[in-house]
């Protein structure tokens, strides 16, 4: 579905990705793991066109992908950033309607509210009045309203209470069971590998290991060497 081939990218003159290559397959969840500074979030930003691809290619369904963020988003890729980026001066409803009114498909306002009933109780609240967990739910719900073919999530559990991490896990599992393709960058090893089908480990801007979630769960040496688990 999404293929990166020898991609170099970075911030200005600082190159972070050095020949990044992996494939995310249709209907599966790919987890990108790695230590801090390995280049996981940079990979996602490059896929989303938020950072320029200096070298290499990114293919979506075998075709060269658009390079501008809005064209990439309109091609069916939704991105939930680490910072969540909830618009504080808009209410929950308005944050959702920002995408709901521009995309059509199976994901409607009612459907995302059924997935996250908590948001239904908060519709008239402002973005700044939400807890971290609610903000994450809103960020995911807003992305789903883009009716994506591929959902990309950057550190969805960061800073959340364990009970909310479990809630987010269950919701993402529901999405996976419904057949939604996902790419997940996550520091929480247990969370990521229990959700993912495939795993790639990033070290110093390139893939240092790839395999299935079952394989990495069973391989303590890999976990210790590349993830410090």
């Amino acid at each position: 579905m999404l293929e990166l081939a020898n991609v170099n990218s970075g911030y200005g003159e600082t190159q972070v990705l050095h020949g990044m290559s992996f494939t995310a397959r249709q209907g599966r969840v790919l987890a990108i793991l790695g230590r801090n500074g390995a280049g996981k979030s940079t990979t996602l930003k490059t896929v989303m066109g938020l950072l320029p691809t200096q070298k290499g290619s990114i293919l979506l369904d075998g075709m060269s992908m658009a390079t501008t963020p809005h064209a990439i988003a309109n091609s069916g890729i939704a991105y939930v950033p680490e910072t969540r980026d909830i618009f504080p001066s808009l209410s929950v409803r308005e944050n959702l309607e920002l995408t709901a009114r521009r995309f059509s498909g199976d994901w409607t306002l009612d459907r995302v509210l059924a997935l996250f009933p908590r948001l239904g109780e908060r519709l008239d609240n402002g973005g700044t009045q939400l807890s971290g967990g609610e903000q994450q739910m809103l960020a995911i719900a807003r992305a789903l309203l883009m009716n994506p073919r591929l959902l990309i999530l950057d550190e969805p559990t960061e800073g959340l209470a364990p009970i909310i991490v479990q809630l987010i896990h269950d919701k993402l599992q529901e999405l996976k069971d419904a057949g939604l393709s996902m790419i997940l960058v996550e520091q929480n090893f247990g969370f990521a590998t229990s959700l993912a089908d495939d795993v790639v480990v990033v070290g110093k801007g390139q893939i240092v290991w790839e395999g299935s979630a079952n394989e990495i769960r069973a391989d303590d040496a890999i976990q210790h060497r590349w993830l410090g688990v």
């Binding site: 809005h70 309109n74 001066s89 920002l98 521009r102 995309f103």
Partner: peptide, 17 residues
């Protein structure tokens, strides 16, 4: 509302299509 979002984060709004 879109303008409001742009004022907060142009990058985010682009990524929202």
């Amino acid at each position: 509302r879109s303008l409001c979002g742009i004022h907060h984060s142009e990058e985010r709004m682009r990524a929202l299509g």
